[in-house]
Each structure stands twice: as structure tokens, then as C-alpha cells.
């Protein structure tokens, strides 16, 4: 029981983590913790086969599937935990507590009688025993699950498959479309500006600078913008800091030639 009492708090905390994490990835990791712990509980209760299956199928396959989908869908935003349906959270908690309370206090105590243990059932080995049951008494259910699995595979394929309803657009079509948009809405037909142009860094999270020194929104990836990790593009502060440093070093070192016609202009605007 020592192992149980060690694992149980971890599982409960991890389960709470599944529910409470802001980020779906964290939830998935917490769930993996619960599942591995569960596998250990299975092992503890003379279910070595399920222990292996739990690790391989659940933690190995299903949780990975979750993570893949998370990546597909995009980890664009952390979930807001603000409840939008009035009273939903209260109802959920009250119901959950009532349910859990009833189960823990009544159903869990309802089991009376000695614990038999699986020593006899597992006499030939757990896998052997399970196989006997599966291929004798539960053989029809087993066959049905095979049908279910095939159906699930087909269903997943159907759902994930996207039918092409129009001919593939060629380079030429795309170019024509761009020019059309330019003609109608004045949308720039060329490439989007690359990040980091005229900026201090050329990393992808630094937006390009426009001639007036402001940042260009469209130069960074939408995913980064949604995540809020795009760096502040305002450069004025950096420039003035650099200039002060240069001045402090004295005119003979690193002297910046002022532009000939408009010395008062800053940020080198006329260079663009």
C-alpha cells in the first residue's frame, strides 16, 4: 500500500493539473503522469498485461496523438479560464463534488467481503488467463472491437481527408489573382516584408521597420503575433542609447557623419 499512498496524491494533483492548466500541452503532460501512475497501479494489482498496454497504448500512442493534434491545431493562444456560460462553473463544481462525494462515501464503502486476490486466476500467468477469457467467453466482443478499430481508422481517414473540388491553382493563376487584388483593392502584389529589415536584429520575432521608424505588423508570423512573443519594434530608445554612448566615447571615436542637407532629421529616414 505504500506505493499506492505515494502515487495517489501525485495522481490527484496531476489530474487537477489536467483540468486547471492554462496550456493544453501542460494538460497533456499532466495526463501522461496520471496514466503512467495508473499503469503502476495496475502492476500493483496483479495486472501486468494491462500495465504494459496502458504504457504502450495510452501513454505511448494516445497521448502522442493528442500532442500531434495540439501541434496541428496550433498552440496559438493559452486558454482563457474566464467562464463564459453563466453559472456553468459553479454547477460543474457542485455536481462534481456531489458525484465524487457520493461515490467515495457510499459506493467505495459498499464493497463488503474478503478480497480474493488474483493468485489463482493468474496461476498460468496473467496474459495466459486474459487470453483464455478473450478468446473464449469474450471472443465476439473481441471480434467486434476489431470491426470498431477498422471503422475508426476509416472514419479518421474520411474526416481528415479533404476533397479537392477545384483544379490546382498554378503559379500563373496565383500571380493573376495577386494582380487582380492589386487592381481592385490596391493590395501590394509583391512579397510581404521580411522580418528584421532595418531592425536591430534580423530574428523572426523582430518586425521590420518602415521608413518612418514604426514597425511593420505584417512582417512577422501570425502565430508569433498571436502568441504575443513579437518583440517591441520601437527602435527610438535603442538609437538614442547608442547615440549617447557614442557621444560619451568622444567625437574622435565612432563619429557619425551627419547627413549633409538635413542634419536635424533623426533615425536616418532619408536613407530609405
Amino acid at each position: 500500500m505504500t506505493a499506492f499512498w505515494l502515487l495517489a496524491p501525485i495522481m490527484v494533483v496531476a489530474a487537477l493539473g489536467v483540468v486547471l492548466s492554462r496550456k493544453a500541452v501542460h494538460s497533456a503532460l499532466c495526463l501522461a503522469v496520471v496514466m503512467i501512475s495508473l499503469a503502476m497501479m495496475y502492476a500493483m494489482q496483479d495486472a501486468p498485461f494491462l500495465f504494459a498496454v496502458q504504457i504502450i497504448v495510452y501513454t505511448g500512442a494516445i497521448m502522442m496523438l493528442f500532442l500531434f493534434v495540439l501541434m496541428l491545431v496550433g498552440v496559438d493562444k493559452t486558454d482563457s479560464l474566464v467562464e463564459t456560460i453563466k453559472g456553468q462553473r459553479l454547477v460543474a463544481i457542485v455536481l462534481g463534488l456531489l458525484f465524487g462525494g457520493v461515490l467515495v462515501t457510499v459506493v467505495a464503502q459498499a464493497f463488503v467481503g474478503p478480497v480474493v486476490g488474483l493468485g489463482e486466476a493468474n496461476a498460468d500467468g496473467n496474459v495466459h488467463g486474459l487470453a483464455k477469457l478473450l478468446f473464449n467467453r469474450y471472443v465476439f466482443a473481441f471480434e467486434a472491437t476489431s470491426a470498431l478499430l477498422i471503422t475508426a481508422v476509416l472514419g479518421a481517414m474520411v474526416l481528415a481527408h479533404r476533397e479537392r473540388l477545384e483544379p490546382r491553382r498554378t503559379q500563373r493563376d496565383l500571380a493573376l489573382e495577386r494582380m487582380q487584388r492589386y487592381a481592385e483593392h490596391g493590395e501590394h502584389p509583391g512579397n510581404l516584408p521580411t522580418p528584421g529589415v532595418y531592425a536591430r536584429h534580423n530574428a523572426v520575432d523582430v518586425p521590420a521597420l518602415l521608413p518612418d521608424g514604426s514597425t511593420s505588423e505584417i512582417s512577422t508570423s501570425k502565430t508569433l503575433r498571436d502568441r504575443g512573443v513579437v518583440r517591441d519594434g520601437a527602435f527610438a530608445g535603442d538609437v538614442s542609447v547608442t547615440m549617447r554612448r557614442l557621444e560619451a566615447d568622444g567625437p574622435e571615436r565612432g563619429r557619425v557623419e551627419p547627413p549633409p542637407s538635413t542634419p536635424a532629421r533623426h533615425d536616418g529616414e532619408e536613407d530609405l
Binding site: A8, G96, L103, A108
Partner: peptide
């Protein structure tokens, strides 16, 4: 009993999660 209790607890937490998360 402890196993069943833990199971109930996990079930309730999962249910709350279903109802609360979007």
C-alpha cells in the same frame, strides 16, 4: 476501498474538467 475512492475522485475531477474547459 482506497483504490475505488481514488477512482471516484479521478472520475469527478475529469467530469468537472469536461464541464469547465472550453
Amino acid at each position: 476501498e482506497p483504490f475505488i475512492g481514488l477512482s471516484a475522485l479521478l472520475f469527478a475531477i475529469g467530469a468537472i474538467g469536461v464541464l469547465v474547459r472550453r
